[in-house]
Amino acid sequence: MSMRPAFHLAVPVDDLDNARTFYGDALGLREGRSGDHWIDWDLCGHQLVTHLIPGDRVPIGTSEVDGHAVPVPHFGLLLPTEDFHALAERLRAAGAEFAVEPCRRFPGEPAEQWTMFLRDPAGNALEFKAFRDEAQVFAR
């Protein structure tokens, strides 16, 4: 039996109710299986697992990219442009605070893209982006 490639990512959270509100309500992800200390999420066909890990988190640093302090480490998705803007509006309506507001980068260049960064309630950083031309994602 063959499966399509998908990733599995596990991230620490300090409160599962806050994770449900953020990942389920704000991001609109479908909740999968769960236990007393974890929740599976469908991140566009990829498995994202939030694991309850009480205590302090390792601080997130930043890297200067195109005039923005980009949180590192981070994870996220490449989305179609229409989906990117719909998600940005959904997050604004949910009161999300952006580490980097939705913005267009590299206008007119092959790598032209929309990007936004935010943190979940546990401090994990997420990036969502959309390329004008998806064929340019890995172009050099």
Rank of each mutant, 00 (worst) to 15 (best):
I39D: 05
P5H: 08
A6H: 14
D66R: 10
I39M: 01
A139Y: 04
A69F: 10
Q113M: 12
K129W: 00
P121W: 00
V13F: 02
L27D: 08
H46K: 03
R33V: 03
R132H: 15
D42L: 03
H46E: 06
A10R: 08
A69C: 10
V13S: 07
W38N: 09
G32A: 09
V100N: 15
L9C: 07
R105S: 09
R4Q: 12
D14P: 02
G24V: 04
E109V: 12
P110D: 12
A99R: 14
D83K: 02
F131Y: 15
A10D: 15
V72P: 14
I60F: 04
A122V: 10
M1S: 14
N18S: 09
D56H: 11
I39Y: 00
G45M: 01
V49Y: 05
C103R: 15
Q47I: 05
R132W: 10
G108A: 11
Y23R: 00
P102K: 04
E64N: 13
R4A: 09
A111V: 13
R30L: 01
H51E: 10
L126Y: 06
A88L: 08
V137A: 05
F138W: 02
G76A: 04
P59D: 09
P12L: 03
D42I: 05
C44I: 08
V137N: 03
A26L: 01
V65M: 12
D15N: 06
P71G: 06
Q47R: 10
D17C: 00
A111D: 14
L118H: 09
I53L: 08
R20M: 00
A139D: 09
F128S: 09
I39S: 01
P121E: 01
Y23H: 00
E109T: 15
F106W: 10
E109Q: 15
Q136A: 09
T62G: 13
P5F: 07
T81E: 13
E97L: 13
D120Q: 08
F98K: 14
E112G: 11
R57K: 12
T62I: 13
A19F: 02
V65E: 13
T115C: 13
A122Y: 05
A26D: 05
D120P: 07
R132Y: 10
R57P: 10
R57T: 12
W38D: 10
L27V: 08
A6Y: 07
H8W: 03
V13Y: 05
E134Y: 05
H8A: 08
D56T: 15
A93I: 04
V100K: 11
P5Y: 08
F22W: 04
E101L: 14
F98N: 15
W114V: 12
E64R: 12
A88F: 07
A94I: 02
V13R: 05
L16H: 07
W41V: 03
D14T: 03
C44H: 09
R105D: 11
M3E: 13
D15Q: 01
A26Y: 00
D56Q: 15
H85L: 11
C103M: 13
H46C: 06
I53V: 14
L52F: 06
R90M: 03
L43T: 06
L118Y: 08
A135P: 07
G35Y: 00
R57S: 11
K129L: 05
I60N: 11
P107Y: 07
L77V: 01
